[in-house]
Design a protein around this nucleic acid. Structure first.
Lengths: 344, 344
DNA sequence: GTGAAAGCGCTAACAT
DNA sequence: ATGTTAGCGCTTTCAC
């Protein structure tokens, strides 16, 4: 210990400020929180004293007395990975802006998710909860609704709580339509692993968009072209290798994520082929590396999703009576060099 | 409030458990926290009742009474980005394992950092603080040491607090030595932007390794080969374009991050060149995409850094008297296809 | 081994 | 406009 002593410099308390300002603790509390019924000069004096003493209200004590924690719980299936990290960054920025602290939990299993509900919400650790791509069970929804906690979901919808999403189906349909317009008919799909522990909604939605686009163009969907890529680079690479080995390989692939699309690029390159001439590739995300590798993709901005969800949550906590409609953020097809007109 | 109303299901309190178990609140408290002086069967009974009632101690109340928060503050310069997200994922997993909650703050400016110290530590919001690649000012260090809060840093060292890092200098030296051994002499360096808001230590350390390797090989360092890439893909690409335009372009580049290395790969490719024949490229990180793009790089595992730092912090909070030595995690040169023997 | 009582630091009724 | 009183839910002496 550098100082030598062991005494922690216990911050000044309301009492200290009260004494020094010749008022009661209640007045200090009122003055500092900008609640009405405090004489302007009293408020000023209290403020000055508080400043001088470096007084900071103890958040635990005030939660205990007032019931608010000024903290929001954020539950994400994963933290690393482009989508999760971007979303989280947006959430963090918006919550900070609003003066809320952020309690982060990764929810990798169903047990984890139940623990978040029990631990954070029911124990009143947080005033609100932000669920990212997490599906709520009916009993949990009921608990949460009853707890009076603010709740906003990203990427999933629940009739009782506001949500923020993108239209995955329409976005995927747009991506595949782009390939169809280029004359491609043998279009493969790089999707989720069959046995994922989570039951994310996204893969199903994007697959539906793929099927809808094919259907609208009267192009039959070939199940052999629907291959699992696990949303990873390596999965995408292996899936693409498999596709290229097919008797009738596709002329284009739509990957449900940019990471899988990168894997596809790599697979083609490793075989000495070239994108887009030997294979057109469309991704989904507009990952930081997509522009660098000239990947045609669907742009989504998870950072905005996160920020908007956080703002809605803050509003919902401030006034639980107003209803917030579900929000859909736009996506955009970004055409780059990885797609070209079909020649075969 | 009549029955059937919207009453929030207030979790059971110590009192509820105490009544139901025919003991006092004090005994419940003791029994549940495994402190001595509770009869085994009493403890068992209390445990059973608590379980039955789904009792969870209110963390705010217990902090108020006991002074512990079971929460750790984590401050990172950024959340999105491979390194930050991976580190955070490691921290989160380890803290959860240890039963601590994680309060996340992005520290983008000096003001932010000071706010973390004031808001989280001095207000006793957290029992410990984890600083990722953040440099502490002397007065902050003093405040923190005096506050009796646990503190561990990642990537920076301070004599008063334990830290976890990698040896950036040695790792960079190893990467550049690899190029030298391959016969390269014109080796460029892709580094940080000159006017970064943060003053990270990492770029300087990696540059030193670069210089040390050249020096050991008696190869003079050409300042024209030390170009800023801003640690981004696009920055790396532009920097590499600039290098290739030089009258005497380098035959190899060492990028201080994989993202810049990806930019370099792209730049070569865009000019119709090929890696490694026209330019050997070494990165730093072993980013998820490095293997996919066959990039020779220095592997570091930020997830492990984060996890180890969290474990040390937990131990430091449990017993502040033991001293933890600074830890250095290993790095490893992963040789892939982006480097080849020099021909010119 | 257990209970009674006294707070932790703050806010919210109720007075004045 | 301000002070007084009474807790929030828990932990912790100090008795027994």
């Amino acid at each position: 210990m550098p100082d030598g002593s062991v005494e922690a410099p216990r911050g000044a308390s309301v009492q200290d400020v009260a004494r020094r300002a010749n008022v009661s603790a209640a007045t200090v509390s009122r003055a500092l929180r900008d609640v009405p019924n405090v004489a302007p000069d009293t408020r000023a004096r209290v403020r000055a004293v508080a400043e001088e003493l470096g007084y900071r209200p103890d958040p635990h004590a005030s939660r205990l007395a007032a019931g608010r924690t000024m903290t929001v719980g954020v539950a994400v299936p994963d933290i690393a990975g482009w989508y999760w990290a971007e979303t989280l960054a947006g959430v963090e920025a918006a919550l900070r802006e609003a003066g809320y602290d952020l309690l982060l939990t990764a929810v990798r299993t169903e047990r984890d998710r139940r623990a978040v509900v029990a631990h954070q919400v029911l124990r009143k650790r947080v005033d609100g909860l932000l669920l990212v791509e997490l599906r709520l069970l009916p009993d949990e929804a009921e608990q949460l609704a009853g707890a009076g906690t603010g709740l906003v979901t990203i990427g999933d919808r629940h009739p009782w709580f506001p949500s923020v999403s993108i239209d995955n189906r329409a976005a995927a349909e747009g991506a595949v339509s782009h390939l169809l317009r280029l004359g491609h008919e043998r279009i493969a799909l790089l999707g989720e692993e069959a046995d994922s522990p989570h039951e994310f909604l996204v893969p199903g939605q994007r697959r539906q968009g793929y099927l809808d686009a094919l259907g609208a163009a009267l192009v039959p969907a070939d199940p052999a072209y629907d291959v699992p890529g696990g949303f990873t680079v390596d999965g995408g690479r292996r899936a693409t290798e498999h596709l290229l080995d097919l008797p009738t390989p596709p002329t284009a692939v739509f990957a449900m994520s940019d990471e899988m699309a990168f894997g596809a690029l790599r697979a083609v390159q490793e075989r000495g082929g070239r994108v887009p001439h030997d294979l057109s590739v469309v991704g989904f995300d507009d990952h930081a590396l997509a522009a660098a590798f000239d990947l045609t993709t669907v742009r989504q901005v998870p950072r905005d999703l996160g920020a908007l969800a956080a703002v809605i949550l803050v509003e919902a906590m401030a006034d639980p009576t107003v209803r917030h409609p579900d929000a859909d953020l736009p996506t955009e097809l970004v055409v780059r060099g990885s797609t070209v007109r079909a020649t075969r």
